[in-house]
Design a protein around this nucleic acid. Structure first.
Length: 790
DNA sequence: ATTGTTGAGCTTTTT
DNA sequence: GCTCAACAAT
């Protein structure tokens, strides 16, 4: 992404480096002239930077230099010697944002940015804290972080163990609920009874508790836990909290409008600064908390973000200074006017009006087309025209509301031979081959990682199917030990078929060998070796399908990226939190992405297709969240328009295929929210569609479309009544206790599920030698046999 | 253990 | 109407 303020004019990175950036900057300040990073700011920005003490809310409209203020503020604090780098807590939402911030601070003050140990995402910082105090949360400090996939798998196990009909109550639904609770800071104990009861006939809360229990056994935390458990540690251990409160002299938060309840609580705890030393009687200090955000760009309400946090800031932090950044450096006048007029239709906002000193430029253009196919064709043509005029394709983006819209553009661009890139497809680390490879590494580094083990035990296929895994599973559950450990015991006995037994033995000795090499050889070489020796690379080499090559490429990329980390542990840590490989692809390309994905970016030319009722605003948003939903959709429209520097082109199609059926659509009400004076409505697409009338009537009758949206036929009967059949209360199987002294003695009559009845011949710990009536003498584990009472 | 068939769902997505 | 996942059948 390119930002006109990426570089601070006049700043010479090479000049003052001796003795560290801080001293040099401080020196510059003393010599009368302000440091360059200050003098390059406008008055409001400068106020936001220099108001270092007390709570500050910076309302930074789109394109007003938000990141610039944040980075300059940190540079300023450091240059003034107000705090050391490790005393500043700077929180972002995405790793990308954190990375960018670090780079830009580095550009301002040099290597000192390296010392900012507490610059990162909410999750990364929480992880760091939680690892230090893991035992206070019932974890070990090397706990694994589960991603969504692992989470679902684990929940499936819980549901299965509880005999819950997985058809009716899916693991995904439960995951969604639990995530929601965690986002709101609710533990199994504090979930409101009504909500907990809504799932699986009243078992929702219990399932949440069981899931948490399983996580602890696995020594694992999901994303939600990272914050929630840290919060719990803070609440239950005032001394720990105090330590961090004292540590952070300055707190900064980016994109404050996106914070959810846990993040808010987490932040508020840290911001409650106690008076420094115990002997001072000064009242609790006001926190040096600076939150930067834009209520008009809050588009993540659906995943728990609470705009209220930003709207409430002044109440939460009395005496807070609110600074508005309204001078826009990005877009031309007409675009800005259109965006401002659009967003003014929202009721719940703090209110801000962007302005620019720049030229008016071209008016945003609204065009109607017959259907989505024509839409793609027309946009393709326009892009080709821009290209012919010498515009860079990197400066062109198509921003869609929903990802299914992307395909039509891709297809069109392929036939045109127009280079494009889809942003926000499946992330690198979510790809199958990467997840598999990581599972191998996880098993090597963390032998107790059951989910990883399960993933790769039969990948590539090695004949360890459902049946044999089930045996290992049973044993592991009964003994409450990790799968790998269970397998280790089982290969000493005859529970498994000889073939599986030797396969397991080979696999385990592979892992042993790899594990013994940790620290012995560079971890990326070890990774390569693991992938090679496990047969995983060969597995893809033999795959003839089209993707196989790309997958091997990705695996190489994975190994390459490991070199940047000090050791395997650090790499795995990073990967579970991040891992977006912005593959540096050569050549200019048009970007195709969702509106959500476009936040924070900017382009010369932005195409905004699909402005139709039902799609944008999305019907589901309206159905589920009413006016709040509509307003969030409108903010999304605002985000879309404000991505454009010089050209914004909006489209609506008369016909669109929705869930397979062609439907006639109505132009989006957001089109009515655009000011006539700043918008160009064109009818030049002469393909015999009925949009001409729209163009004539729309400004005459503002409410033409506003009041009549009816629920389309595809609206689903959403409420499955609470009825249904009675809950099945069969508890999960009673777990056999691992009795230290064996409950068996020679001569006992026993029954084995597979081998049938027999008599114990000898006992060796948990291993029994049994003479089976039919199967002969076998070595089995005591947990697999039942003693016959008589 | 692979291959075919049926059925549900279908907005946005980070960590 | 299309896709993916879960089950059944070979």
């Amino acid at each position: 992404m390119s930002d006109p303020f990426d570089d601070f004019p006049g700043f010479e990175p090479a000049a003052p480096r001796a003795g560290g950036g801080i001293a040099a900057c401080a020196l510059a300040a003393m010599h009368g002239g302000a440091p360059d990073f200050l003098s390059a700011l406008n008055p409001e920005q400068r106020a936001a930077v220099e108001t270092t003490e007390g709570p500050v809310l910076v309302l930074a409209g789109a394109g007003t230099g938000k990141t610039r203020v944040l980075t300059a503020r940190i540079a300023h604090i450091l240059a003034q010697g107000l705090a050391r780098p490790h005393q500043i807590l700077a929180v972002t939402f995405t790793n990308k944002a954190a990375r960018e911030m670090r780079e830009r601070i580095g550009a301002l003050i040099g290597g000192e940015a390296e010392g900012m140990a507490w610059l990162g995402t909410f999750h990364a910082i929480s992880t760091k804290i939680l690892r230090r105090h893991a035992e206070l949360a019932g974890l070990k400090s090397n706990f694994t972080i589960l991603d969504t996939d692992d989470q679902i798998r684990l929940l499936k196990q819980v549901l299965r163990a509880e005999n819950i009909d997985e058809k009716r109550w899916t693991a995904r639904t439960l995951a969604f609920l639990i995530d929601n609770w965690k986002n709101r800071g609710l533990s199994p104990k504090t979930v409101p009874a009504g909500e907990a009861g809504a799932f699986a006939n009243g078992k929702g809360g219990a399932l949440y508790a069981l899931y948490q229990e399983r996580l602890k056994i696995l020594n694992a935390a999901d994303f939600g836990d990272l914050l929630l458990e840290t919060l719990r540690v803070f609440r239950e251990n005032p001394d720990v909290l105090r330590e961090y409160q004292g540590r952070f002299k300055y707190l900064l938060v980016d994109e404050y409008q996106d914070t959810n309840a846990v993040q808010y609580l987490w932040l508020r705890l840290l911001a409650q600064r106690q008076a420094g030393a115990a002997n001072e009687i000064t009242p609790a200090q006001k926190p040096n908390l600076c939150c930067v955000g834009d209520d008009d760009q809050s588009i993540y309400g659906w995943r728990g973000a609470d705009v209220d946090n930003i709207l409430r800031f002044e109440k939460d932090f009395p005496g807070a200074k609110v600074i508005r950044l309204e001078r826009n450096y990005r877009s031309t006048g007409h675009i800005l006017a259109a965006a401002a007029h659009l967003i003014a239709h929202n009721r719940d906002r703090l209110g801000k009006t962007l302005f620019t000193d720049g030229e008016d430029g071209e008016k945003p253009e609204v065009s109607g087309v017959w259907d989505s196919e024509e839409e793609a064709r027309v946009i393709g043509e326009e892009i080709e025209q821009l290209q012919r005029k010498g515009h860079s394709l990197d400066q062109v983006a198509i921003l869609v509301r929903a990802s299914f819209q992307m395909r039509e553009f891709e297809e069109r661009f392929i036939t045109l031979g127009l280079p494009y890139k889809v942003i926000g497809g499946p992330r690198f680390y979510e790809r199958l081959e990467i997840r598999d490879a990581l599972a191998y590494l996880r098993c090597t580094a963390q032998p107790a990682d059951d989910l990883a083990f399960e993933r790769i035990v039969n990948t590539p296929k090695r004949g360890l199917g459902e049946a044999s895994l089930q045996i290992v599973h049973d044993h592991a559950r009964r003994q409450r030990i990790p799968l790998m450990q269970a397998a280790r015991i089982l290969i000493e006995t005859e529970e498994l078929k000889p073939k599986q037994r030797s396969t397991f033995r080979a696999l385990l000795s592979d892992f042993d060998r790899w594990a013994s090499q940790i620290g012995q050889k560079p971890h990326h070489e070890l990774a390569e070796q693991i992938l090679e020796e496990s047969g995983y690379t060969d597995f893809w080499k033999q795959d003839k399908s089209a993707e196989a090559e790309g997958r091997l490429e990705n695996l190489k990329e994975l190994v390459r990226s490991m070199e940047e980390f000090p050791d395997l542990g650090a790499f795995l840590e990073h990967v579970s939190l991040v891992m977006d490989a912005d593959a540096a692809d050569g050549g200019e390309r048009v970007s195709i992405m969702t509106l959500h994905g476009a936040k924070g970016l900017e382009f010369e030319t932005v195409f905004l297709p699909g402005w139709e009722e039902g799609l944008f605003p999305h019907q589901r948003s309206l159905d589920e969240n009413g006016r709040a939903g509509l307003e969030e959709e409108r903010r999304l429209a605002y985000v879309g328009v404000t991505r454009a520097r010089r050209r914004a082109k909006i489209y609506f199609a008369t016909n669109r295929r929705i869930h397979g059926l062609w439907q006639t659509t109505t132009p989006s009400r957001f089109l009515d929210d655009l000011p006539a004076a700043h918008v160009q409505v064109t009818e030049n697409r002469a393909s015999g569609s009925g949009y001409g009338a729209y163009a004539q009537s729309r400004f005459a009758n503002m409410d033409a479309f506003g009041s009549r949206y009816d629920t389309p036929g595809w609206k689903r009967a959403q409420q499955n009544g609470p009825g249904g059949r009675a809950p099945r209360t069969i508890e999960g199987e009673v777990l056999g206790k691992s009795s230290p002294g064996s409950a068996f003695s020679p001569g006992d009559r026993v029954f084995h599920l597979k081998f049938g009845p027999g008599a114990v011949a000898a006992v060796d710990g948990s291993k029994l030698t049994i003479d089976f009536d039919k199967a002969g003498r076998k070595l089995v584990l005591d947990s697999f046999v039942e003693k016959k009472s008589s």
